[in-house]
Design a binder for these strands. Sequence first.
DNA 1: TTTATTTCGGATAAAATTATCCTATTTATA
DNA 2: TATAAATAGGATAATTTTATCCGAAATAAA
Lengths: 144, 144
Amino acid sequence: MFSKACEYGIKASIFIAINSYEGKRVSPKEISEEIDSPRAFTAKILQALVKHNVINSVKGAHGGFEIDKKDISSIKLSQIVNAIDGDKIYSGCGLGLHRCDENHPCPVHDKFKTIKAELKDMLEHTNLEQLALDIKSGVSFLKI
Amino acid sequence: MFSKACEYGIKASIFIAINSYEGKRVSPKEISEEIDSPRAFTAKILQALVKHNVINSVKGAHGGFEIDKKDISSIKLSQIVNAIDGDKIYSGCGLGLHRCDENHPCPVHDKFKTIKAELKDMLEHTNLEQLALDIKSGVSFLKI
DNA sequence: TTTATTTCGGATAAAATTATCCTATTTATA
DNA sequence: TATAAATAGGATAATTTTATCCGAAATAAA
């Protein structure tokens, strides 16, 4: 569904959000340990998220990654996914046709339509705050 | 969503079905031209579909790939997808956790639940005949 | 039985994704 | 100002996916 990079990006964002609520910046090392991902690769993904303004980075001593507390509830899953995988997951043709629309549909166009719309809707309406609170309260988990 | 291999596999199966209705076997060459895919790679995928009993192959002169006419309506998209990509698309965890279930859910487990269930349902209830008829009648397309 | 046609299957290559390493740059603080 | 602690980013490697090539095996028909 998502690329590994995207999976790591989502989990990392959630972990950063949790820590940001407590005013704490986190490093790629802490993040990769907490979400069970390769450290250096995770660092690259964090760079991409910074470039796409999903998270902030602070260089130098006492630096790390953080998210503005006031932004956490408005950051949508779709922004994270888009920053890393683009929108092909819900915009692209299910069978890879270059052109696939109502007037020139692939064989599964209609069958996929509602599913892709729901996926898009879900990603656009799920925000980081919801996901972070579930982790904080022990309802959901970032690894294993 | 699906791998390239799986996209090719689905399109190839549809094309084979159409020709099988007319009692015609088709070769990897014809198939790859019709679905716009790399020939040798497509041939490998066809082998996999044969092994999983989705399509039949007939070796030697006048051979080719075909599907029993009477089977076309009972072959589900899920069988093709399973033969090539497995069931991870609707069974695996959306964030790649090794364990992800009701008692130990990943952060997006609930959000994905209905979407994955619908995807599974769609794949299990869409059969090759429906897809083939739409291509035959010009309602949908296998390439471009 | 020979030949032409066709799938099968192993070896290999190319490209994309995932992952690692090392140095440069930035910044707080002693 | 020197130092230690961080992220940034380039180079490279490993793995997986996608793709190609070629000879072997099977089969229909001449």
